[in-house]
Simulated assay, not measured.
Amino acid sequence: MFRIDRNLTADDLDKALRADVIEGLSVEPKRLPPKWFYDERGSALFEEITGLPEYYPTRAERAILERHSQEIAEAADAVALVELGSGSGVKTRLLLDAMLGHGRLKRFVPVDVSGAFLASSAQRVAQDYPGLDVHAVVGDFEHHLGLLPVNEHEGPQMLAVLGSTIGNQEPDERAGFLRDVHATLDFGDSFLLGVDLVKDPARLVAAYDDAQGVTAEFNRNVLSVINHRLGGDFDPEGFDHVSRWDAEQEWIEMRLRSRTHQHVRVADLDLEVEFFPGEDMRTEISAKFRREGLTKELDTAGFTLTHWWTDPAGDFALCLSTAG
């Protein structure tokens, strides 16, 4: 069975983009949210990034799922899997296979902001798993958690956020998101979270600044999105890609650094912006975690960490918590 709820329209996305660009280009230092990387070209570039030798997170998380998905299925003992930011769902199939093999899974709820992409990937899941109820939801999980079709069936749910997506949020945003996830679940439900771990800064920086320059193109693509969708006249090649490790915050920052003095106009917003030579605009943070700190964050939100799995190199972790 396949069905799809649409809590986010193209008009909603346009309004959100406009608001983010107006706000981000009007503050100092300038910033843009990373979710606007992902038009069709941006998504293709990110898929290319995941296969680069420097970019370990996707391989490491998959290695954990290949080794431990059965343990995850047994520990969660869930009748429904809700995945936020489901994307292509490649890694998710390892979970689905294990949970179906465990014998209790009845329903899969993939959630993503891209309606066309989600519909296509979710329909493929429904075709490949004919006994599974696939209930896709188009929505922004930072705003639409309360609209998710959870707890419709008796039995425990497992909500999953893979790929260290949570690392893109600043600490206050992350705390609010974890509280919202907890409020979405019932007592005893499970929360599966993928997180990238603190490691050698040189490896971290290289993962976000590959030798082939794919990440640089991915970073500059946010300017192309603004040009295409809002009538901007950014020159993407007028900005250098910068990846730096913030040791105090323990996160990677991606920035775009203006090469020259530039005046940019965004016609649809009637907005003019000035960039000075060497001025940085932040486009992404990617926080890295330690077990002790993450345990405290989960505890504050009402979760109890029960399981912790890492890849053989200890680069990445999947942690399972229960809602108290």
Rank of each mutant, 00 (worst) to 15 (best):
E83S: 11
D11H: 11
T58M: 13
L65M: 15
V21D: 02
E83P: 11
A60S: 15
A78I: 13
S26T: 00
R67S: 15
E48R: 15
R67Y: 10
S26L: 02
V27A: 07
A78Y: 15
L32P: 00
E23D: 14
Y38W: 02
S86N: 12
A60H: 04
K30F: 00
L17S: 02
L13V: 15
G24F: 00
R18Y: 05
R31Q: 02
I64F: 06
L52H: 12
V90K: 14
P53K: 08
F37N: 02
E40Y: 10
P57C: 05
E61F: 04
P57S: 05
Y56A: 04
D20V: 00
V82D: 02
P33A: 08
Q70F: 12
V21W: 00
E61C: 03
V82K: 01
P57N: 06
K91C: 05
K30W: 01
D39E: 08
A75S: 11
L17M: 04
L17F: 02
A44Q: 14
F37C: 01
H68M: 08
E66P: 04
A73H: 10
T92R: 01
A76D: 04
L84I: 07
L94P: 09
D20E: 02
V27T: 09
G87L: 13
E66C: 04
E54C: 05
I49K: 03
R59Q: 11
